[in-house]
Design a protein around this nucleic acid. Structure first.
Length: 594
RNA sequence: GGGGGUGUAGCUCAGUUGGUUAGAGCGCUGGCCUGUCACGCCAGAGGCCGCGGGUUCGAGUCCCGUCACUCCCGCCA
């Protein structure tokens, strides 16, 4: 007989009755009746009930073992009587009568029970991650993550993509996020950087003629965390392809994403391909964001012209100064108490905005200060344009176009949440396309890239030379699911003369471009295929499919919000000898010295 | 760097307008229990009320500061 097990803890059935078997696993739960004792034995696969009584020589030892100890039990599989069958367990029609018992590894008293579905403080869960990972939900999330990644690999490979590895130690890139730096021992004073993404490498792979690349790629960015953004490191399905247009990239990645989501949807609906494509400017107007949640049925409309020169003085005056007014319909809210509208206004003010105006229509009669001052005729115009019913409400966000759109977008989400309008149980995908190449940087008072500077401008060199830079669009796209930005992508700029011009508009000289991106630029001068790609975030895909609100729930060993690994104790101080080897001297900030 | 929330037993939480001895459930320890599967019953141990200062006759409760965790803004081409 095998030293540890003949079966796993999810295998035994009535067909095994009478056999002598051996199981190993963790003591999930004990139920001690004094002279009769049940042990739920758990492993990765499942749970099997083991039983012993006072007549057994193993009884005392089993009674003494603590939960989460690892044990090995040998005994006979017996059928349970009809009244003691547990239909909730796949193994619930049988149990193991313990004849031999061994403790393979005793557990101390637990800081955090594994059994049950209690909530525990996150710092404790992270410090004892190995215990938390034993718990069913988290354990299943990790299995799901593995299956999703396997499915992605299969789907990419079936489409002719090949997986290639790219360096982890590379050069610091001058654009983008803060780099993690690694000091060089052999080259005093010089540093490697961990890749923020394999962006330049995958373009070089295309230039090297490999045609279709993908990688489940680790990416490192030294930026602050969010609930959907783990600090430090994350994974992307990084992909790139040659001789393609934007539509070709969509056609390649859509079936992979749709396929993976359908495979793991468990009854939830998935947007059929092709996914809707929404131009950036339309998204900003209708949804107030470039990552709209299309499960939310509310659409924002511009109502500036109705308020222009009208009876509601505050808005009319703002409009004179260049402001716009955006309307956010709130279906059915008109019948709600005034406190609902006041609460929304308070919420907007607490978010740092001047406030949120409203009209509440009750039994066909518009109420509130805006309706009163605007007058009946214009209020009717609003009702017609927005299609408001007899008991609907509407909120107004007024301000500079960017601010008004942002507030309207947040209000759209807030209203839908408050009114319970978001249709759950589905994955609503869309592409956001036609991002502008440039935007005006109010702080630096100059034109700057709004997204990826390596994207190909629509219209190419001619567009850059003849159009207002702020009107130039890029072959640049995002894919969004349920309001979560899964990825940005682009058709790349593979022509050096277009790149020089694109950077010139943003204020970079030829010399600047060569200094900063010499390697890439050089490669483009020796025959580069037109190419493009995208890099959907793996962690966020798993988060959506696992229906988890926090990215740490789908990462095996995550860091906390302060980018610390509480289990391993990272980051940590190092021995002075290590610093000397690396030619590093630590200069602490004043605040850390005390 | 900034704003919000939380911090009471190992864990989850309650604790009234400031009032005498800070409670419950789970877990832990001991006892009883031969069909449980959230087993049950009895008893017990376990508290710098995050930390520091202040107001007060009196602070878990009020004020100021600080620390930790978390959510958000900035940041993330």
């Amino acid at each position: 007989m095998h030293s540890y097990r003949t079966h796993n803890c999810s295998e035994l059935r009535e067909t095994h009755v009478g056999q002598t078997v051996r199981l190993s696993g963790w003591v999930h739960r004990k139920r001690d009746h004094g002279n009769l004792l049940f042990v739920d034995l758990r492993d990765h696969y499942g749970i099997t009930q083991c039983v012993t009584d006072v007549d057994s020589k193993a009884f005392q030892a089993v009674e003494a073992v603590r939960a989460e100890s690892v044990i090995c039990v040998t005994g006979t599989v017996v059928a349970r009587t009809e009244d003691t069958v547990n239909e909730n367990l796949p193994t619930g029609r049988v149990e193991l009568k313990i004849e031999d018992f061994e403790v393979l590894s005793a557990a101390q008293e637990l800081p955090m029970p594994v059994f049950g579905d209690h909530d525990y403080p996150e710092d404790m869960r992270l410090r004892y991650r190995f215990l938390d990972l034993r718990r069913h939900k988290l354990h299943q999330n990790m299995v799901l993550r593995s299956e999703i990644i396997a499915s992605i690999r299969r789907r990419m490979t079936e489409q002719g993509f090949r997986e290639y590895q790219t360096p982890i130690l590379t050069a610091s890139s001058p654009e983008g996020a803060r780099d993690f730096l690694v000091p060089s021992r052999l080259h005093p004073g010089k540093f490697y950087a961990l890749p923020q993404a394999p962006q330049q490498f995958k373009q070089l792979i295309m230039i090297a003629g490999f045609d279709r690349y993908f990688q489940i790629a680790p990416c490192f960015r030294d930026e602050d965390a969010r609930a959907d953004r783990s600090p430090g490191e994350f994974y992307q399905l990084d992909m790139e392809m040659s001789f393609v247009t934007q539509d070709d990239v969509f056609a390649a990645i859509e079936p992979v994403l749709a396929g993976v989501f359908e495979e793991f949807a468990q009854g939830r609906k998935v947007t059929p391909t092709p996914f809707p494509r929404i131009p950036y400017r339309e998204a900003m107007l209708k949804y107030g964001t470039d990552k709209p949640d299309l499960r939310n049925p509310i659409e924002i409309q511009d109502v500036t012209e109705i308020f222009r020169g009208g009876g509601f003085g505050l808005f009319a005056k703002l409009i004179e100064g260049g402001a716009v007014v955006r309307a956010i319909p709130a279906p059915g809210a008109g019948a709600l108490a005034r406190s609902f509208f006041d609460k929304m206004n308070d919420w907007a003010r607490s978010a740092g905005y001047a406030g949120l105006g409203y009209i509440n229509i009750k039994d066909g009669v518009p109420g509130g200060p805006i309706a009163k001052n605007l007058g009946e005729e214009k209020t009717d115009l609003l009702r017609t344009q927005l299609g408001l019913g007899d008991n609907d409400g509407v909120f107004f966000a007024a301000g500079r176009p960017g601010d008004a759109a942002r507030l309207a977008g947040m209000a759209r989400t807030k209203v839908a949440e408050e009114l319970n309008l978001i249709e759950t149980g589905q994955f609503a995908f869309c592409w956001i396309v036609d991002f502008p190449m440039y935007e005006y940087d109010e702080v630096q008072k100059k034109i700057d890239f709004s997204h990826n500077p390596f994207s190909m401008p629509q219209g190419g060199l001619e567009a850059l030379e003849t159009q207002d830079p702020l009107d130039v669009l890029g072959y640049q796209y995002d894919i969004v699911c349920n309001g979560v930005e899964l990825s940005s992508g682009a058709i790349r700029n593979h022509r050096p003369e277009v790149m020089y011009k694109a950077f010139e508009i943003a204020g970079y000289s030829r010399q600047d471009v060569e200094t900063r991106f010499g390697g890439m630029l050089n490669a483009l001068k020796y025959g580069a295929p037109p190419h493009g790609g995208i890099a959907p975030g793996i962690d966020r895909i798993v988060m959506l499919l696992a229906d988890e609100p926090n990215i740490r729930e789908v990462i095996m060993f995550p860091m906390n919000q302060q980018a610390q690994d509480l289990m391993m104790g990272a980051p940590s101080e190092v021995h002075p000898k290590q610093l000397r080897e690396l030619h590093i001297r630590v200069v602490l900030p004043e605040s850390a010295k005390a």
